[in-house]
Design a protein around this nucleic acid. Structure first.
Lengths: 290, 290
DNA sequence: CGATCGTTTGACGGTGCTCAATCACCGTGG
DNA sequence: CCACGGTGATTGAGCACCGTCAAACGATCG
């Protein structure tokens, strides 16, 4: 496998860079990929999938390759089938802000449907496979395949849910809490995909995590060490294992850091330190239709 | 059209709180609201809007009322027509986390399409008007009105874009930068709706902003005062006016706070303080289609 | 084996969270 | 009319957390 990884790094996407146009790693185009695509999106058809008059192209993306380039025209909407991506936005001073990580089932480049060009980039963190839905055909495909349409809506709904969870994650004031939430969140996502929720292999670097969470990468490293010292995690470079799930989730809820009382292996010690309710407005609740 | 939608819509919401069931403020149901709805979503039909065999219900929501209740079943997808909402998620300890603010054109409750119940609440910050699209009819409506379908996809794309901007906003390390980005972001959103981009009337409290940005509400207040002292803003409670746009946008780019050199009315002083590029992986870029 | 990048740990200084007090605004009731 | 709670906004003081700088260590690849 990996037949030569040749040469000339190229600045932007160069479709010919990967040389041969064959698809040695793509055996699933013969079998109808639609049912697979629908399942990825989280849509389980009760009946057999209708065989549509189109076939969804499958692309492979090498580790380190850019599937989406900022500013480029967007001709496709992608659904990740395998692999992990990081979605980035490069500031004019060169700082690379990570906006999200995409895993199988996630939709990419749909944001570009409401404007002309891509506003975020996407780089594969490992060898990956994506379904590529041409935007010019998408409406027609959705119209002749209600299942595809429904699955896409479902996936978009999930994507919006993820975005909300992301906001909730980043709204934590303490960096420890942010990282704890990220780990739990990632663990849940892995579990939803049938993988282990305790043993995680993070494909992204500390710096990428730090960029996403809005903290220094040294702080991420320190927080990992803190969790390991407390017996919540077992960290070995990018391979981490959750030891004390309830303890980790307890860290999730704290408003401000864990108090540094170094609980002597006390597990779920941390009593939630505050977060006043602030009983907000719910005076009147009313809706009136026509 | 929607013959009477009487009464007992919900158990959690208290429909009687607003007493009378009449709709004095709802005159736009007679005229076809579809073109208005499409325009709201950002879709400008090149031709006249087809007159569909359905009509979209219009609801009014009073200030302080809950349009969405966490945990409730979601029967509708809403499109905000007028007013402002805050989307919240209440933690088990009672802390109210603000996840987003919704303004006209935004879609609400679409996240619930991929699960059973609503995972976020939405409270009107002022009297508001929304279009209510029943989820049970949505597929059929979209199918018989391609314009509605297209507009919905467009709006969802914009919503995802907003979510990405939100992540970018919150990834700022400094609280000043976070607030500056929020103001500029909000200003842009108002400008996109045809309102003034310099004079803003924030409908949400300092605490709501602080919750969204993940900082203490005192810090938000302090940052406002800082910007006012620097001549970037003019703050009068929730009425703020942007004085120095370029100066404010300069604050947006800083990684760490403004250095506290108190530029003597120097306007666009702040030279961007760093943010190392970190030239990341763009080794190979290749895609191979089938 | 050496170069490069990622990860970890230390020290220091500043930012911002907490606690607290004060003031402005508002609807209610005297 | 003003007194009176209640909420929101602002400002201050103190100290912990975390960003910055720096160095050492480990991993990966050529």
């Amino acid at each position: 496998m990996t037949p030569a990884r040749n040469t000339s790094t190229e600045q932007l996407i160069r479709p010919d860079a990967w040389s041969n146009g064959r698809c040695a790693l793509m055996p699933m185009t013969a079998e109808s990929p639609l049912s697979d695509l629908l399942a990825l999106m989280g849509f389980e058809p009760g009946r057999a999938v209708d065989n549509p008059p189109f076939s969804v192209p499958v692309w492979q993306v090498r580790a380190g390759a850019a599937l989406l380039v900022e500013g480029a025209r967007a001709h496709h909407v992608y659904v990740v089938r395998a692999g992990t991506f990081k979605c980035i936005k490069t500031a004019e001073d060169g700082y690379e802000q990570v906006l999200a990580f995409a895993v199988p089932g996630d939709v990419l480049a749909f944001e570009a449907m409401c404007r002309d060009s891509q506003h975020m980039g996407a780089v594969a963190l490992e060898d990956a496979i994506v379904y590529a839905l041409p935007v010019r055909d998408l409406d027609a495909w959705r119209q002749c395949s209600p299942m595809l349409d429904h699955a896409l809506q479902f996936a978009l709904s999930r994507q919006l849910t993820r975005a909300g969870e992301m906001t909730e994650l980043m709204a934590a004031v303490s960096s420890d809490v942010r990282l704890a939430r990220f780990i739990v969140w990632w663990s849940n996502r892995m579990a939803a995909r049938g993988q282990s929720s305790r043993r995680l292999l993070l494909r992204m670097s500390r710096r990428d995590i730090a960029s996403l969470l809005g903290v220094a990468h040294e702080t991420v490293s320190r927080s990992f060490s803190n969790f390991a010292d407390q017996g919540l995690l077992q960290v070995d470079n990018r391979e981490i294992e959750i030891i004390d799930v309830v303890g980790l989730k307890a860290c999730t809820r704290n408003t401000r850091g864990l108090g540094d009382d170094t609980p002597s292996r006390g597990a779920t010690s941390g009593r939630s330190a505050g977060a006043r309710p602030h009983a907000s407005a719910s005076k009147a609740a009313a809706v009136v239709s026509h």
